[in-house]
């Protein structure tokens, strides 16, 4: 299988590289990958080098899905589609913010593509600015904690729900901390004809401020605290949920990361933590996680 070649410039413990590898391992060699501008693009393709072993294209920041749709249309028109999978592999900013227009259009039109959002919850390539994927209370460089701020004021945009609303045959969440779950879902998605969306939670040690070795652990804590629910949807209906056996309080997830440190050191932080616990509790109820 065609994992990323070594020598790429991803940070030690890079979540993007892990996500890309799981996608590539699951999808096989008969794939064409499209990526937007961002960490994954910059770290894998400094001219004249490339870490990709499969055909890969980068055009701009906000057009991953449109480029993928164009490739799919071209292969169909030229009679070369066969079993080739076209995969978009993009970050949260490129997916949930600037690229939503093209993504929505591609899903509405029903192109046979699989789109994977690698969600590390901020614009990491430009230096950890907030995105629509940044969770409540996280300190980023554009939602910093300060005398009158506990960090980001909004919850994560519910992107999987938006994608499911397009009537896509398959929409799922996953996490790079559950590689087998992620690879199973990628395989399922690429084998389904039509547009499929995979939203992969991806802890970034640089942006979230934790030791690189703990990347997998942090992602598991997000799932075990119910802050990142794992579920599958087919044609807008939830068809599978990963149950949580021993749900942990959100503090265990938050305290492990520098971006939430202020919640534990500043007066009033406990109220913010309580709000975050409410988000987790809502997830438990809404998705039936217990």
């Amino acid at each position: 299988m065609s994992r990323l070649a070594p020598g790429h410039r991803g940070c030690p413990g890079c979540c993007d590289a892990m996500a890309a590898n799981f996608v590539l391992e699951a999808a096989g060699d008969d794939v064409i990958v499209v990526s937007p501008t961002g960490c994954l693009e910059v770290m894998t393709t400094p001219y004249p080098e490339s870490a990709w072993e499969v055909p890969w294209i980068h055009s701009l920041f906000e057009n991953t899905a449109s480029v993928a749709a164009g490739i799919e249309s071209a292969l169909k028109a030229l009679g070369r589609k066969g079993n080739t999978k076209i995969i978009g592999l993009a970050g949260d900013g490129a997916t949930m913010d600037i690229g939503t227009l093209g993504l929505s259009g591609a899903f509405e039109r029903g192109h046979d593509i699989t789109y994977v959002c690698i969600d590390n919850e901020a614009y990491m390539n430009t230096g950890v600015q907030r995105s629509g994927g940044t969770p409540y209370g996280a300190s980023t460089t554009t939602s910093p904690t300060g005398k009158k701020s506990f960090g980001n004021r909004t919850q994560k945009k519910n992107m999987p729900a938006i994608m499911a609303a397009h009537g896509a045959p398959y929409v799922t969440t996953t996490s790079i901390s559950y590689p087998k779950d992620m690879m199973r879902k990628v395989k399922k998605a690429v084998d389904i004809e039509g547009p499929c969306y995979i939203h992969a939670h991806a802890p970034c040690s640089t942006g979230w401020r934790f030791e690189s070795a703990r990347t997998v652990e942090i992602g598991k804590l997000a799932v075990e605290t119910a802050l990142w629910p794992l579920y599958e949807m087919e044609y807008s209906e939830i068809t599978g949920v990963k149950k949580i056996k021993n749900k942990k309080p959100v503090e265990e997830y938050l305290k492990a990361q520098g971006r939430f440190k202020h919640l534990f050191t500043r007066e009033g932080g406990e109220k913010e933590i309580a709000k975050i616990q409410e988000i987790a509790d809502w997830n438990v109820k809404h998705y039936g996680l217990e």
Binding site: A5, P6, G7, H8, P12, T44, P48, S50, A51, V54
Partner: peptide, 23 residues
Amino acid sequence: MKIAIGGMVEPGSTRVNKTGGWR
């Protein structure tokens, strides 16, 4: 090195960059 029109790059070519030195 000669730049091809459009700047296509060969697959897997980051291997020339030995990142072990970062360790």
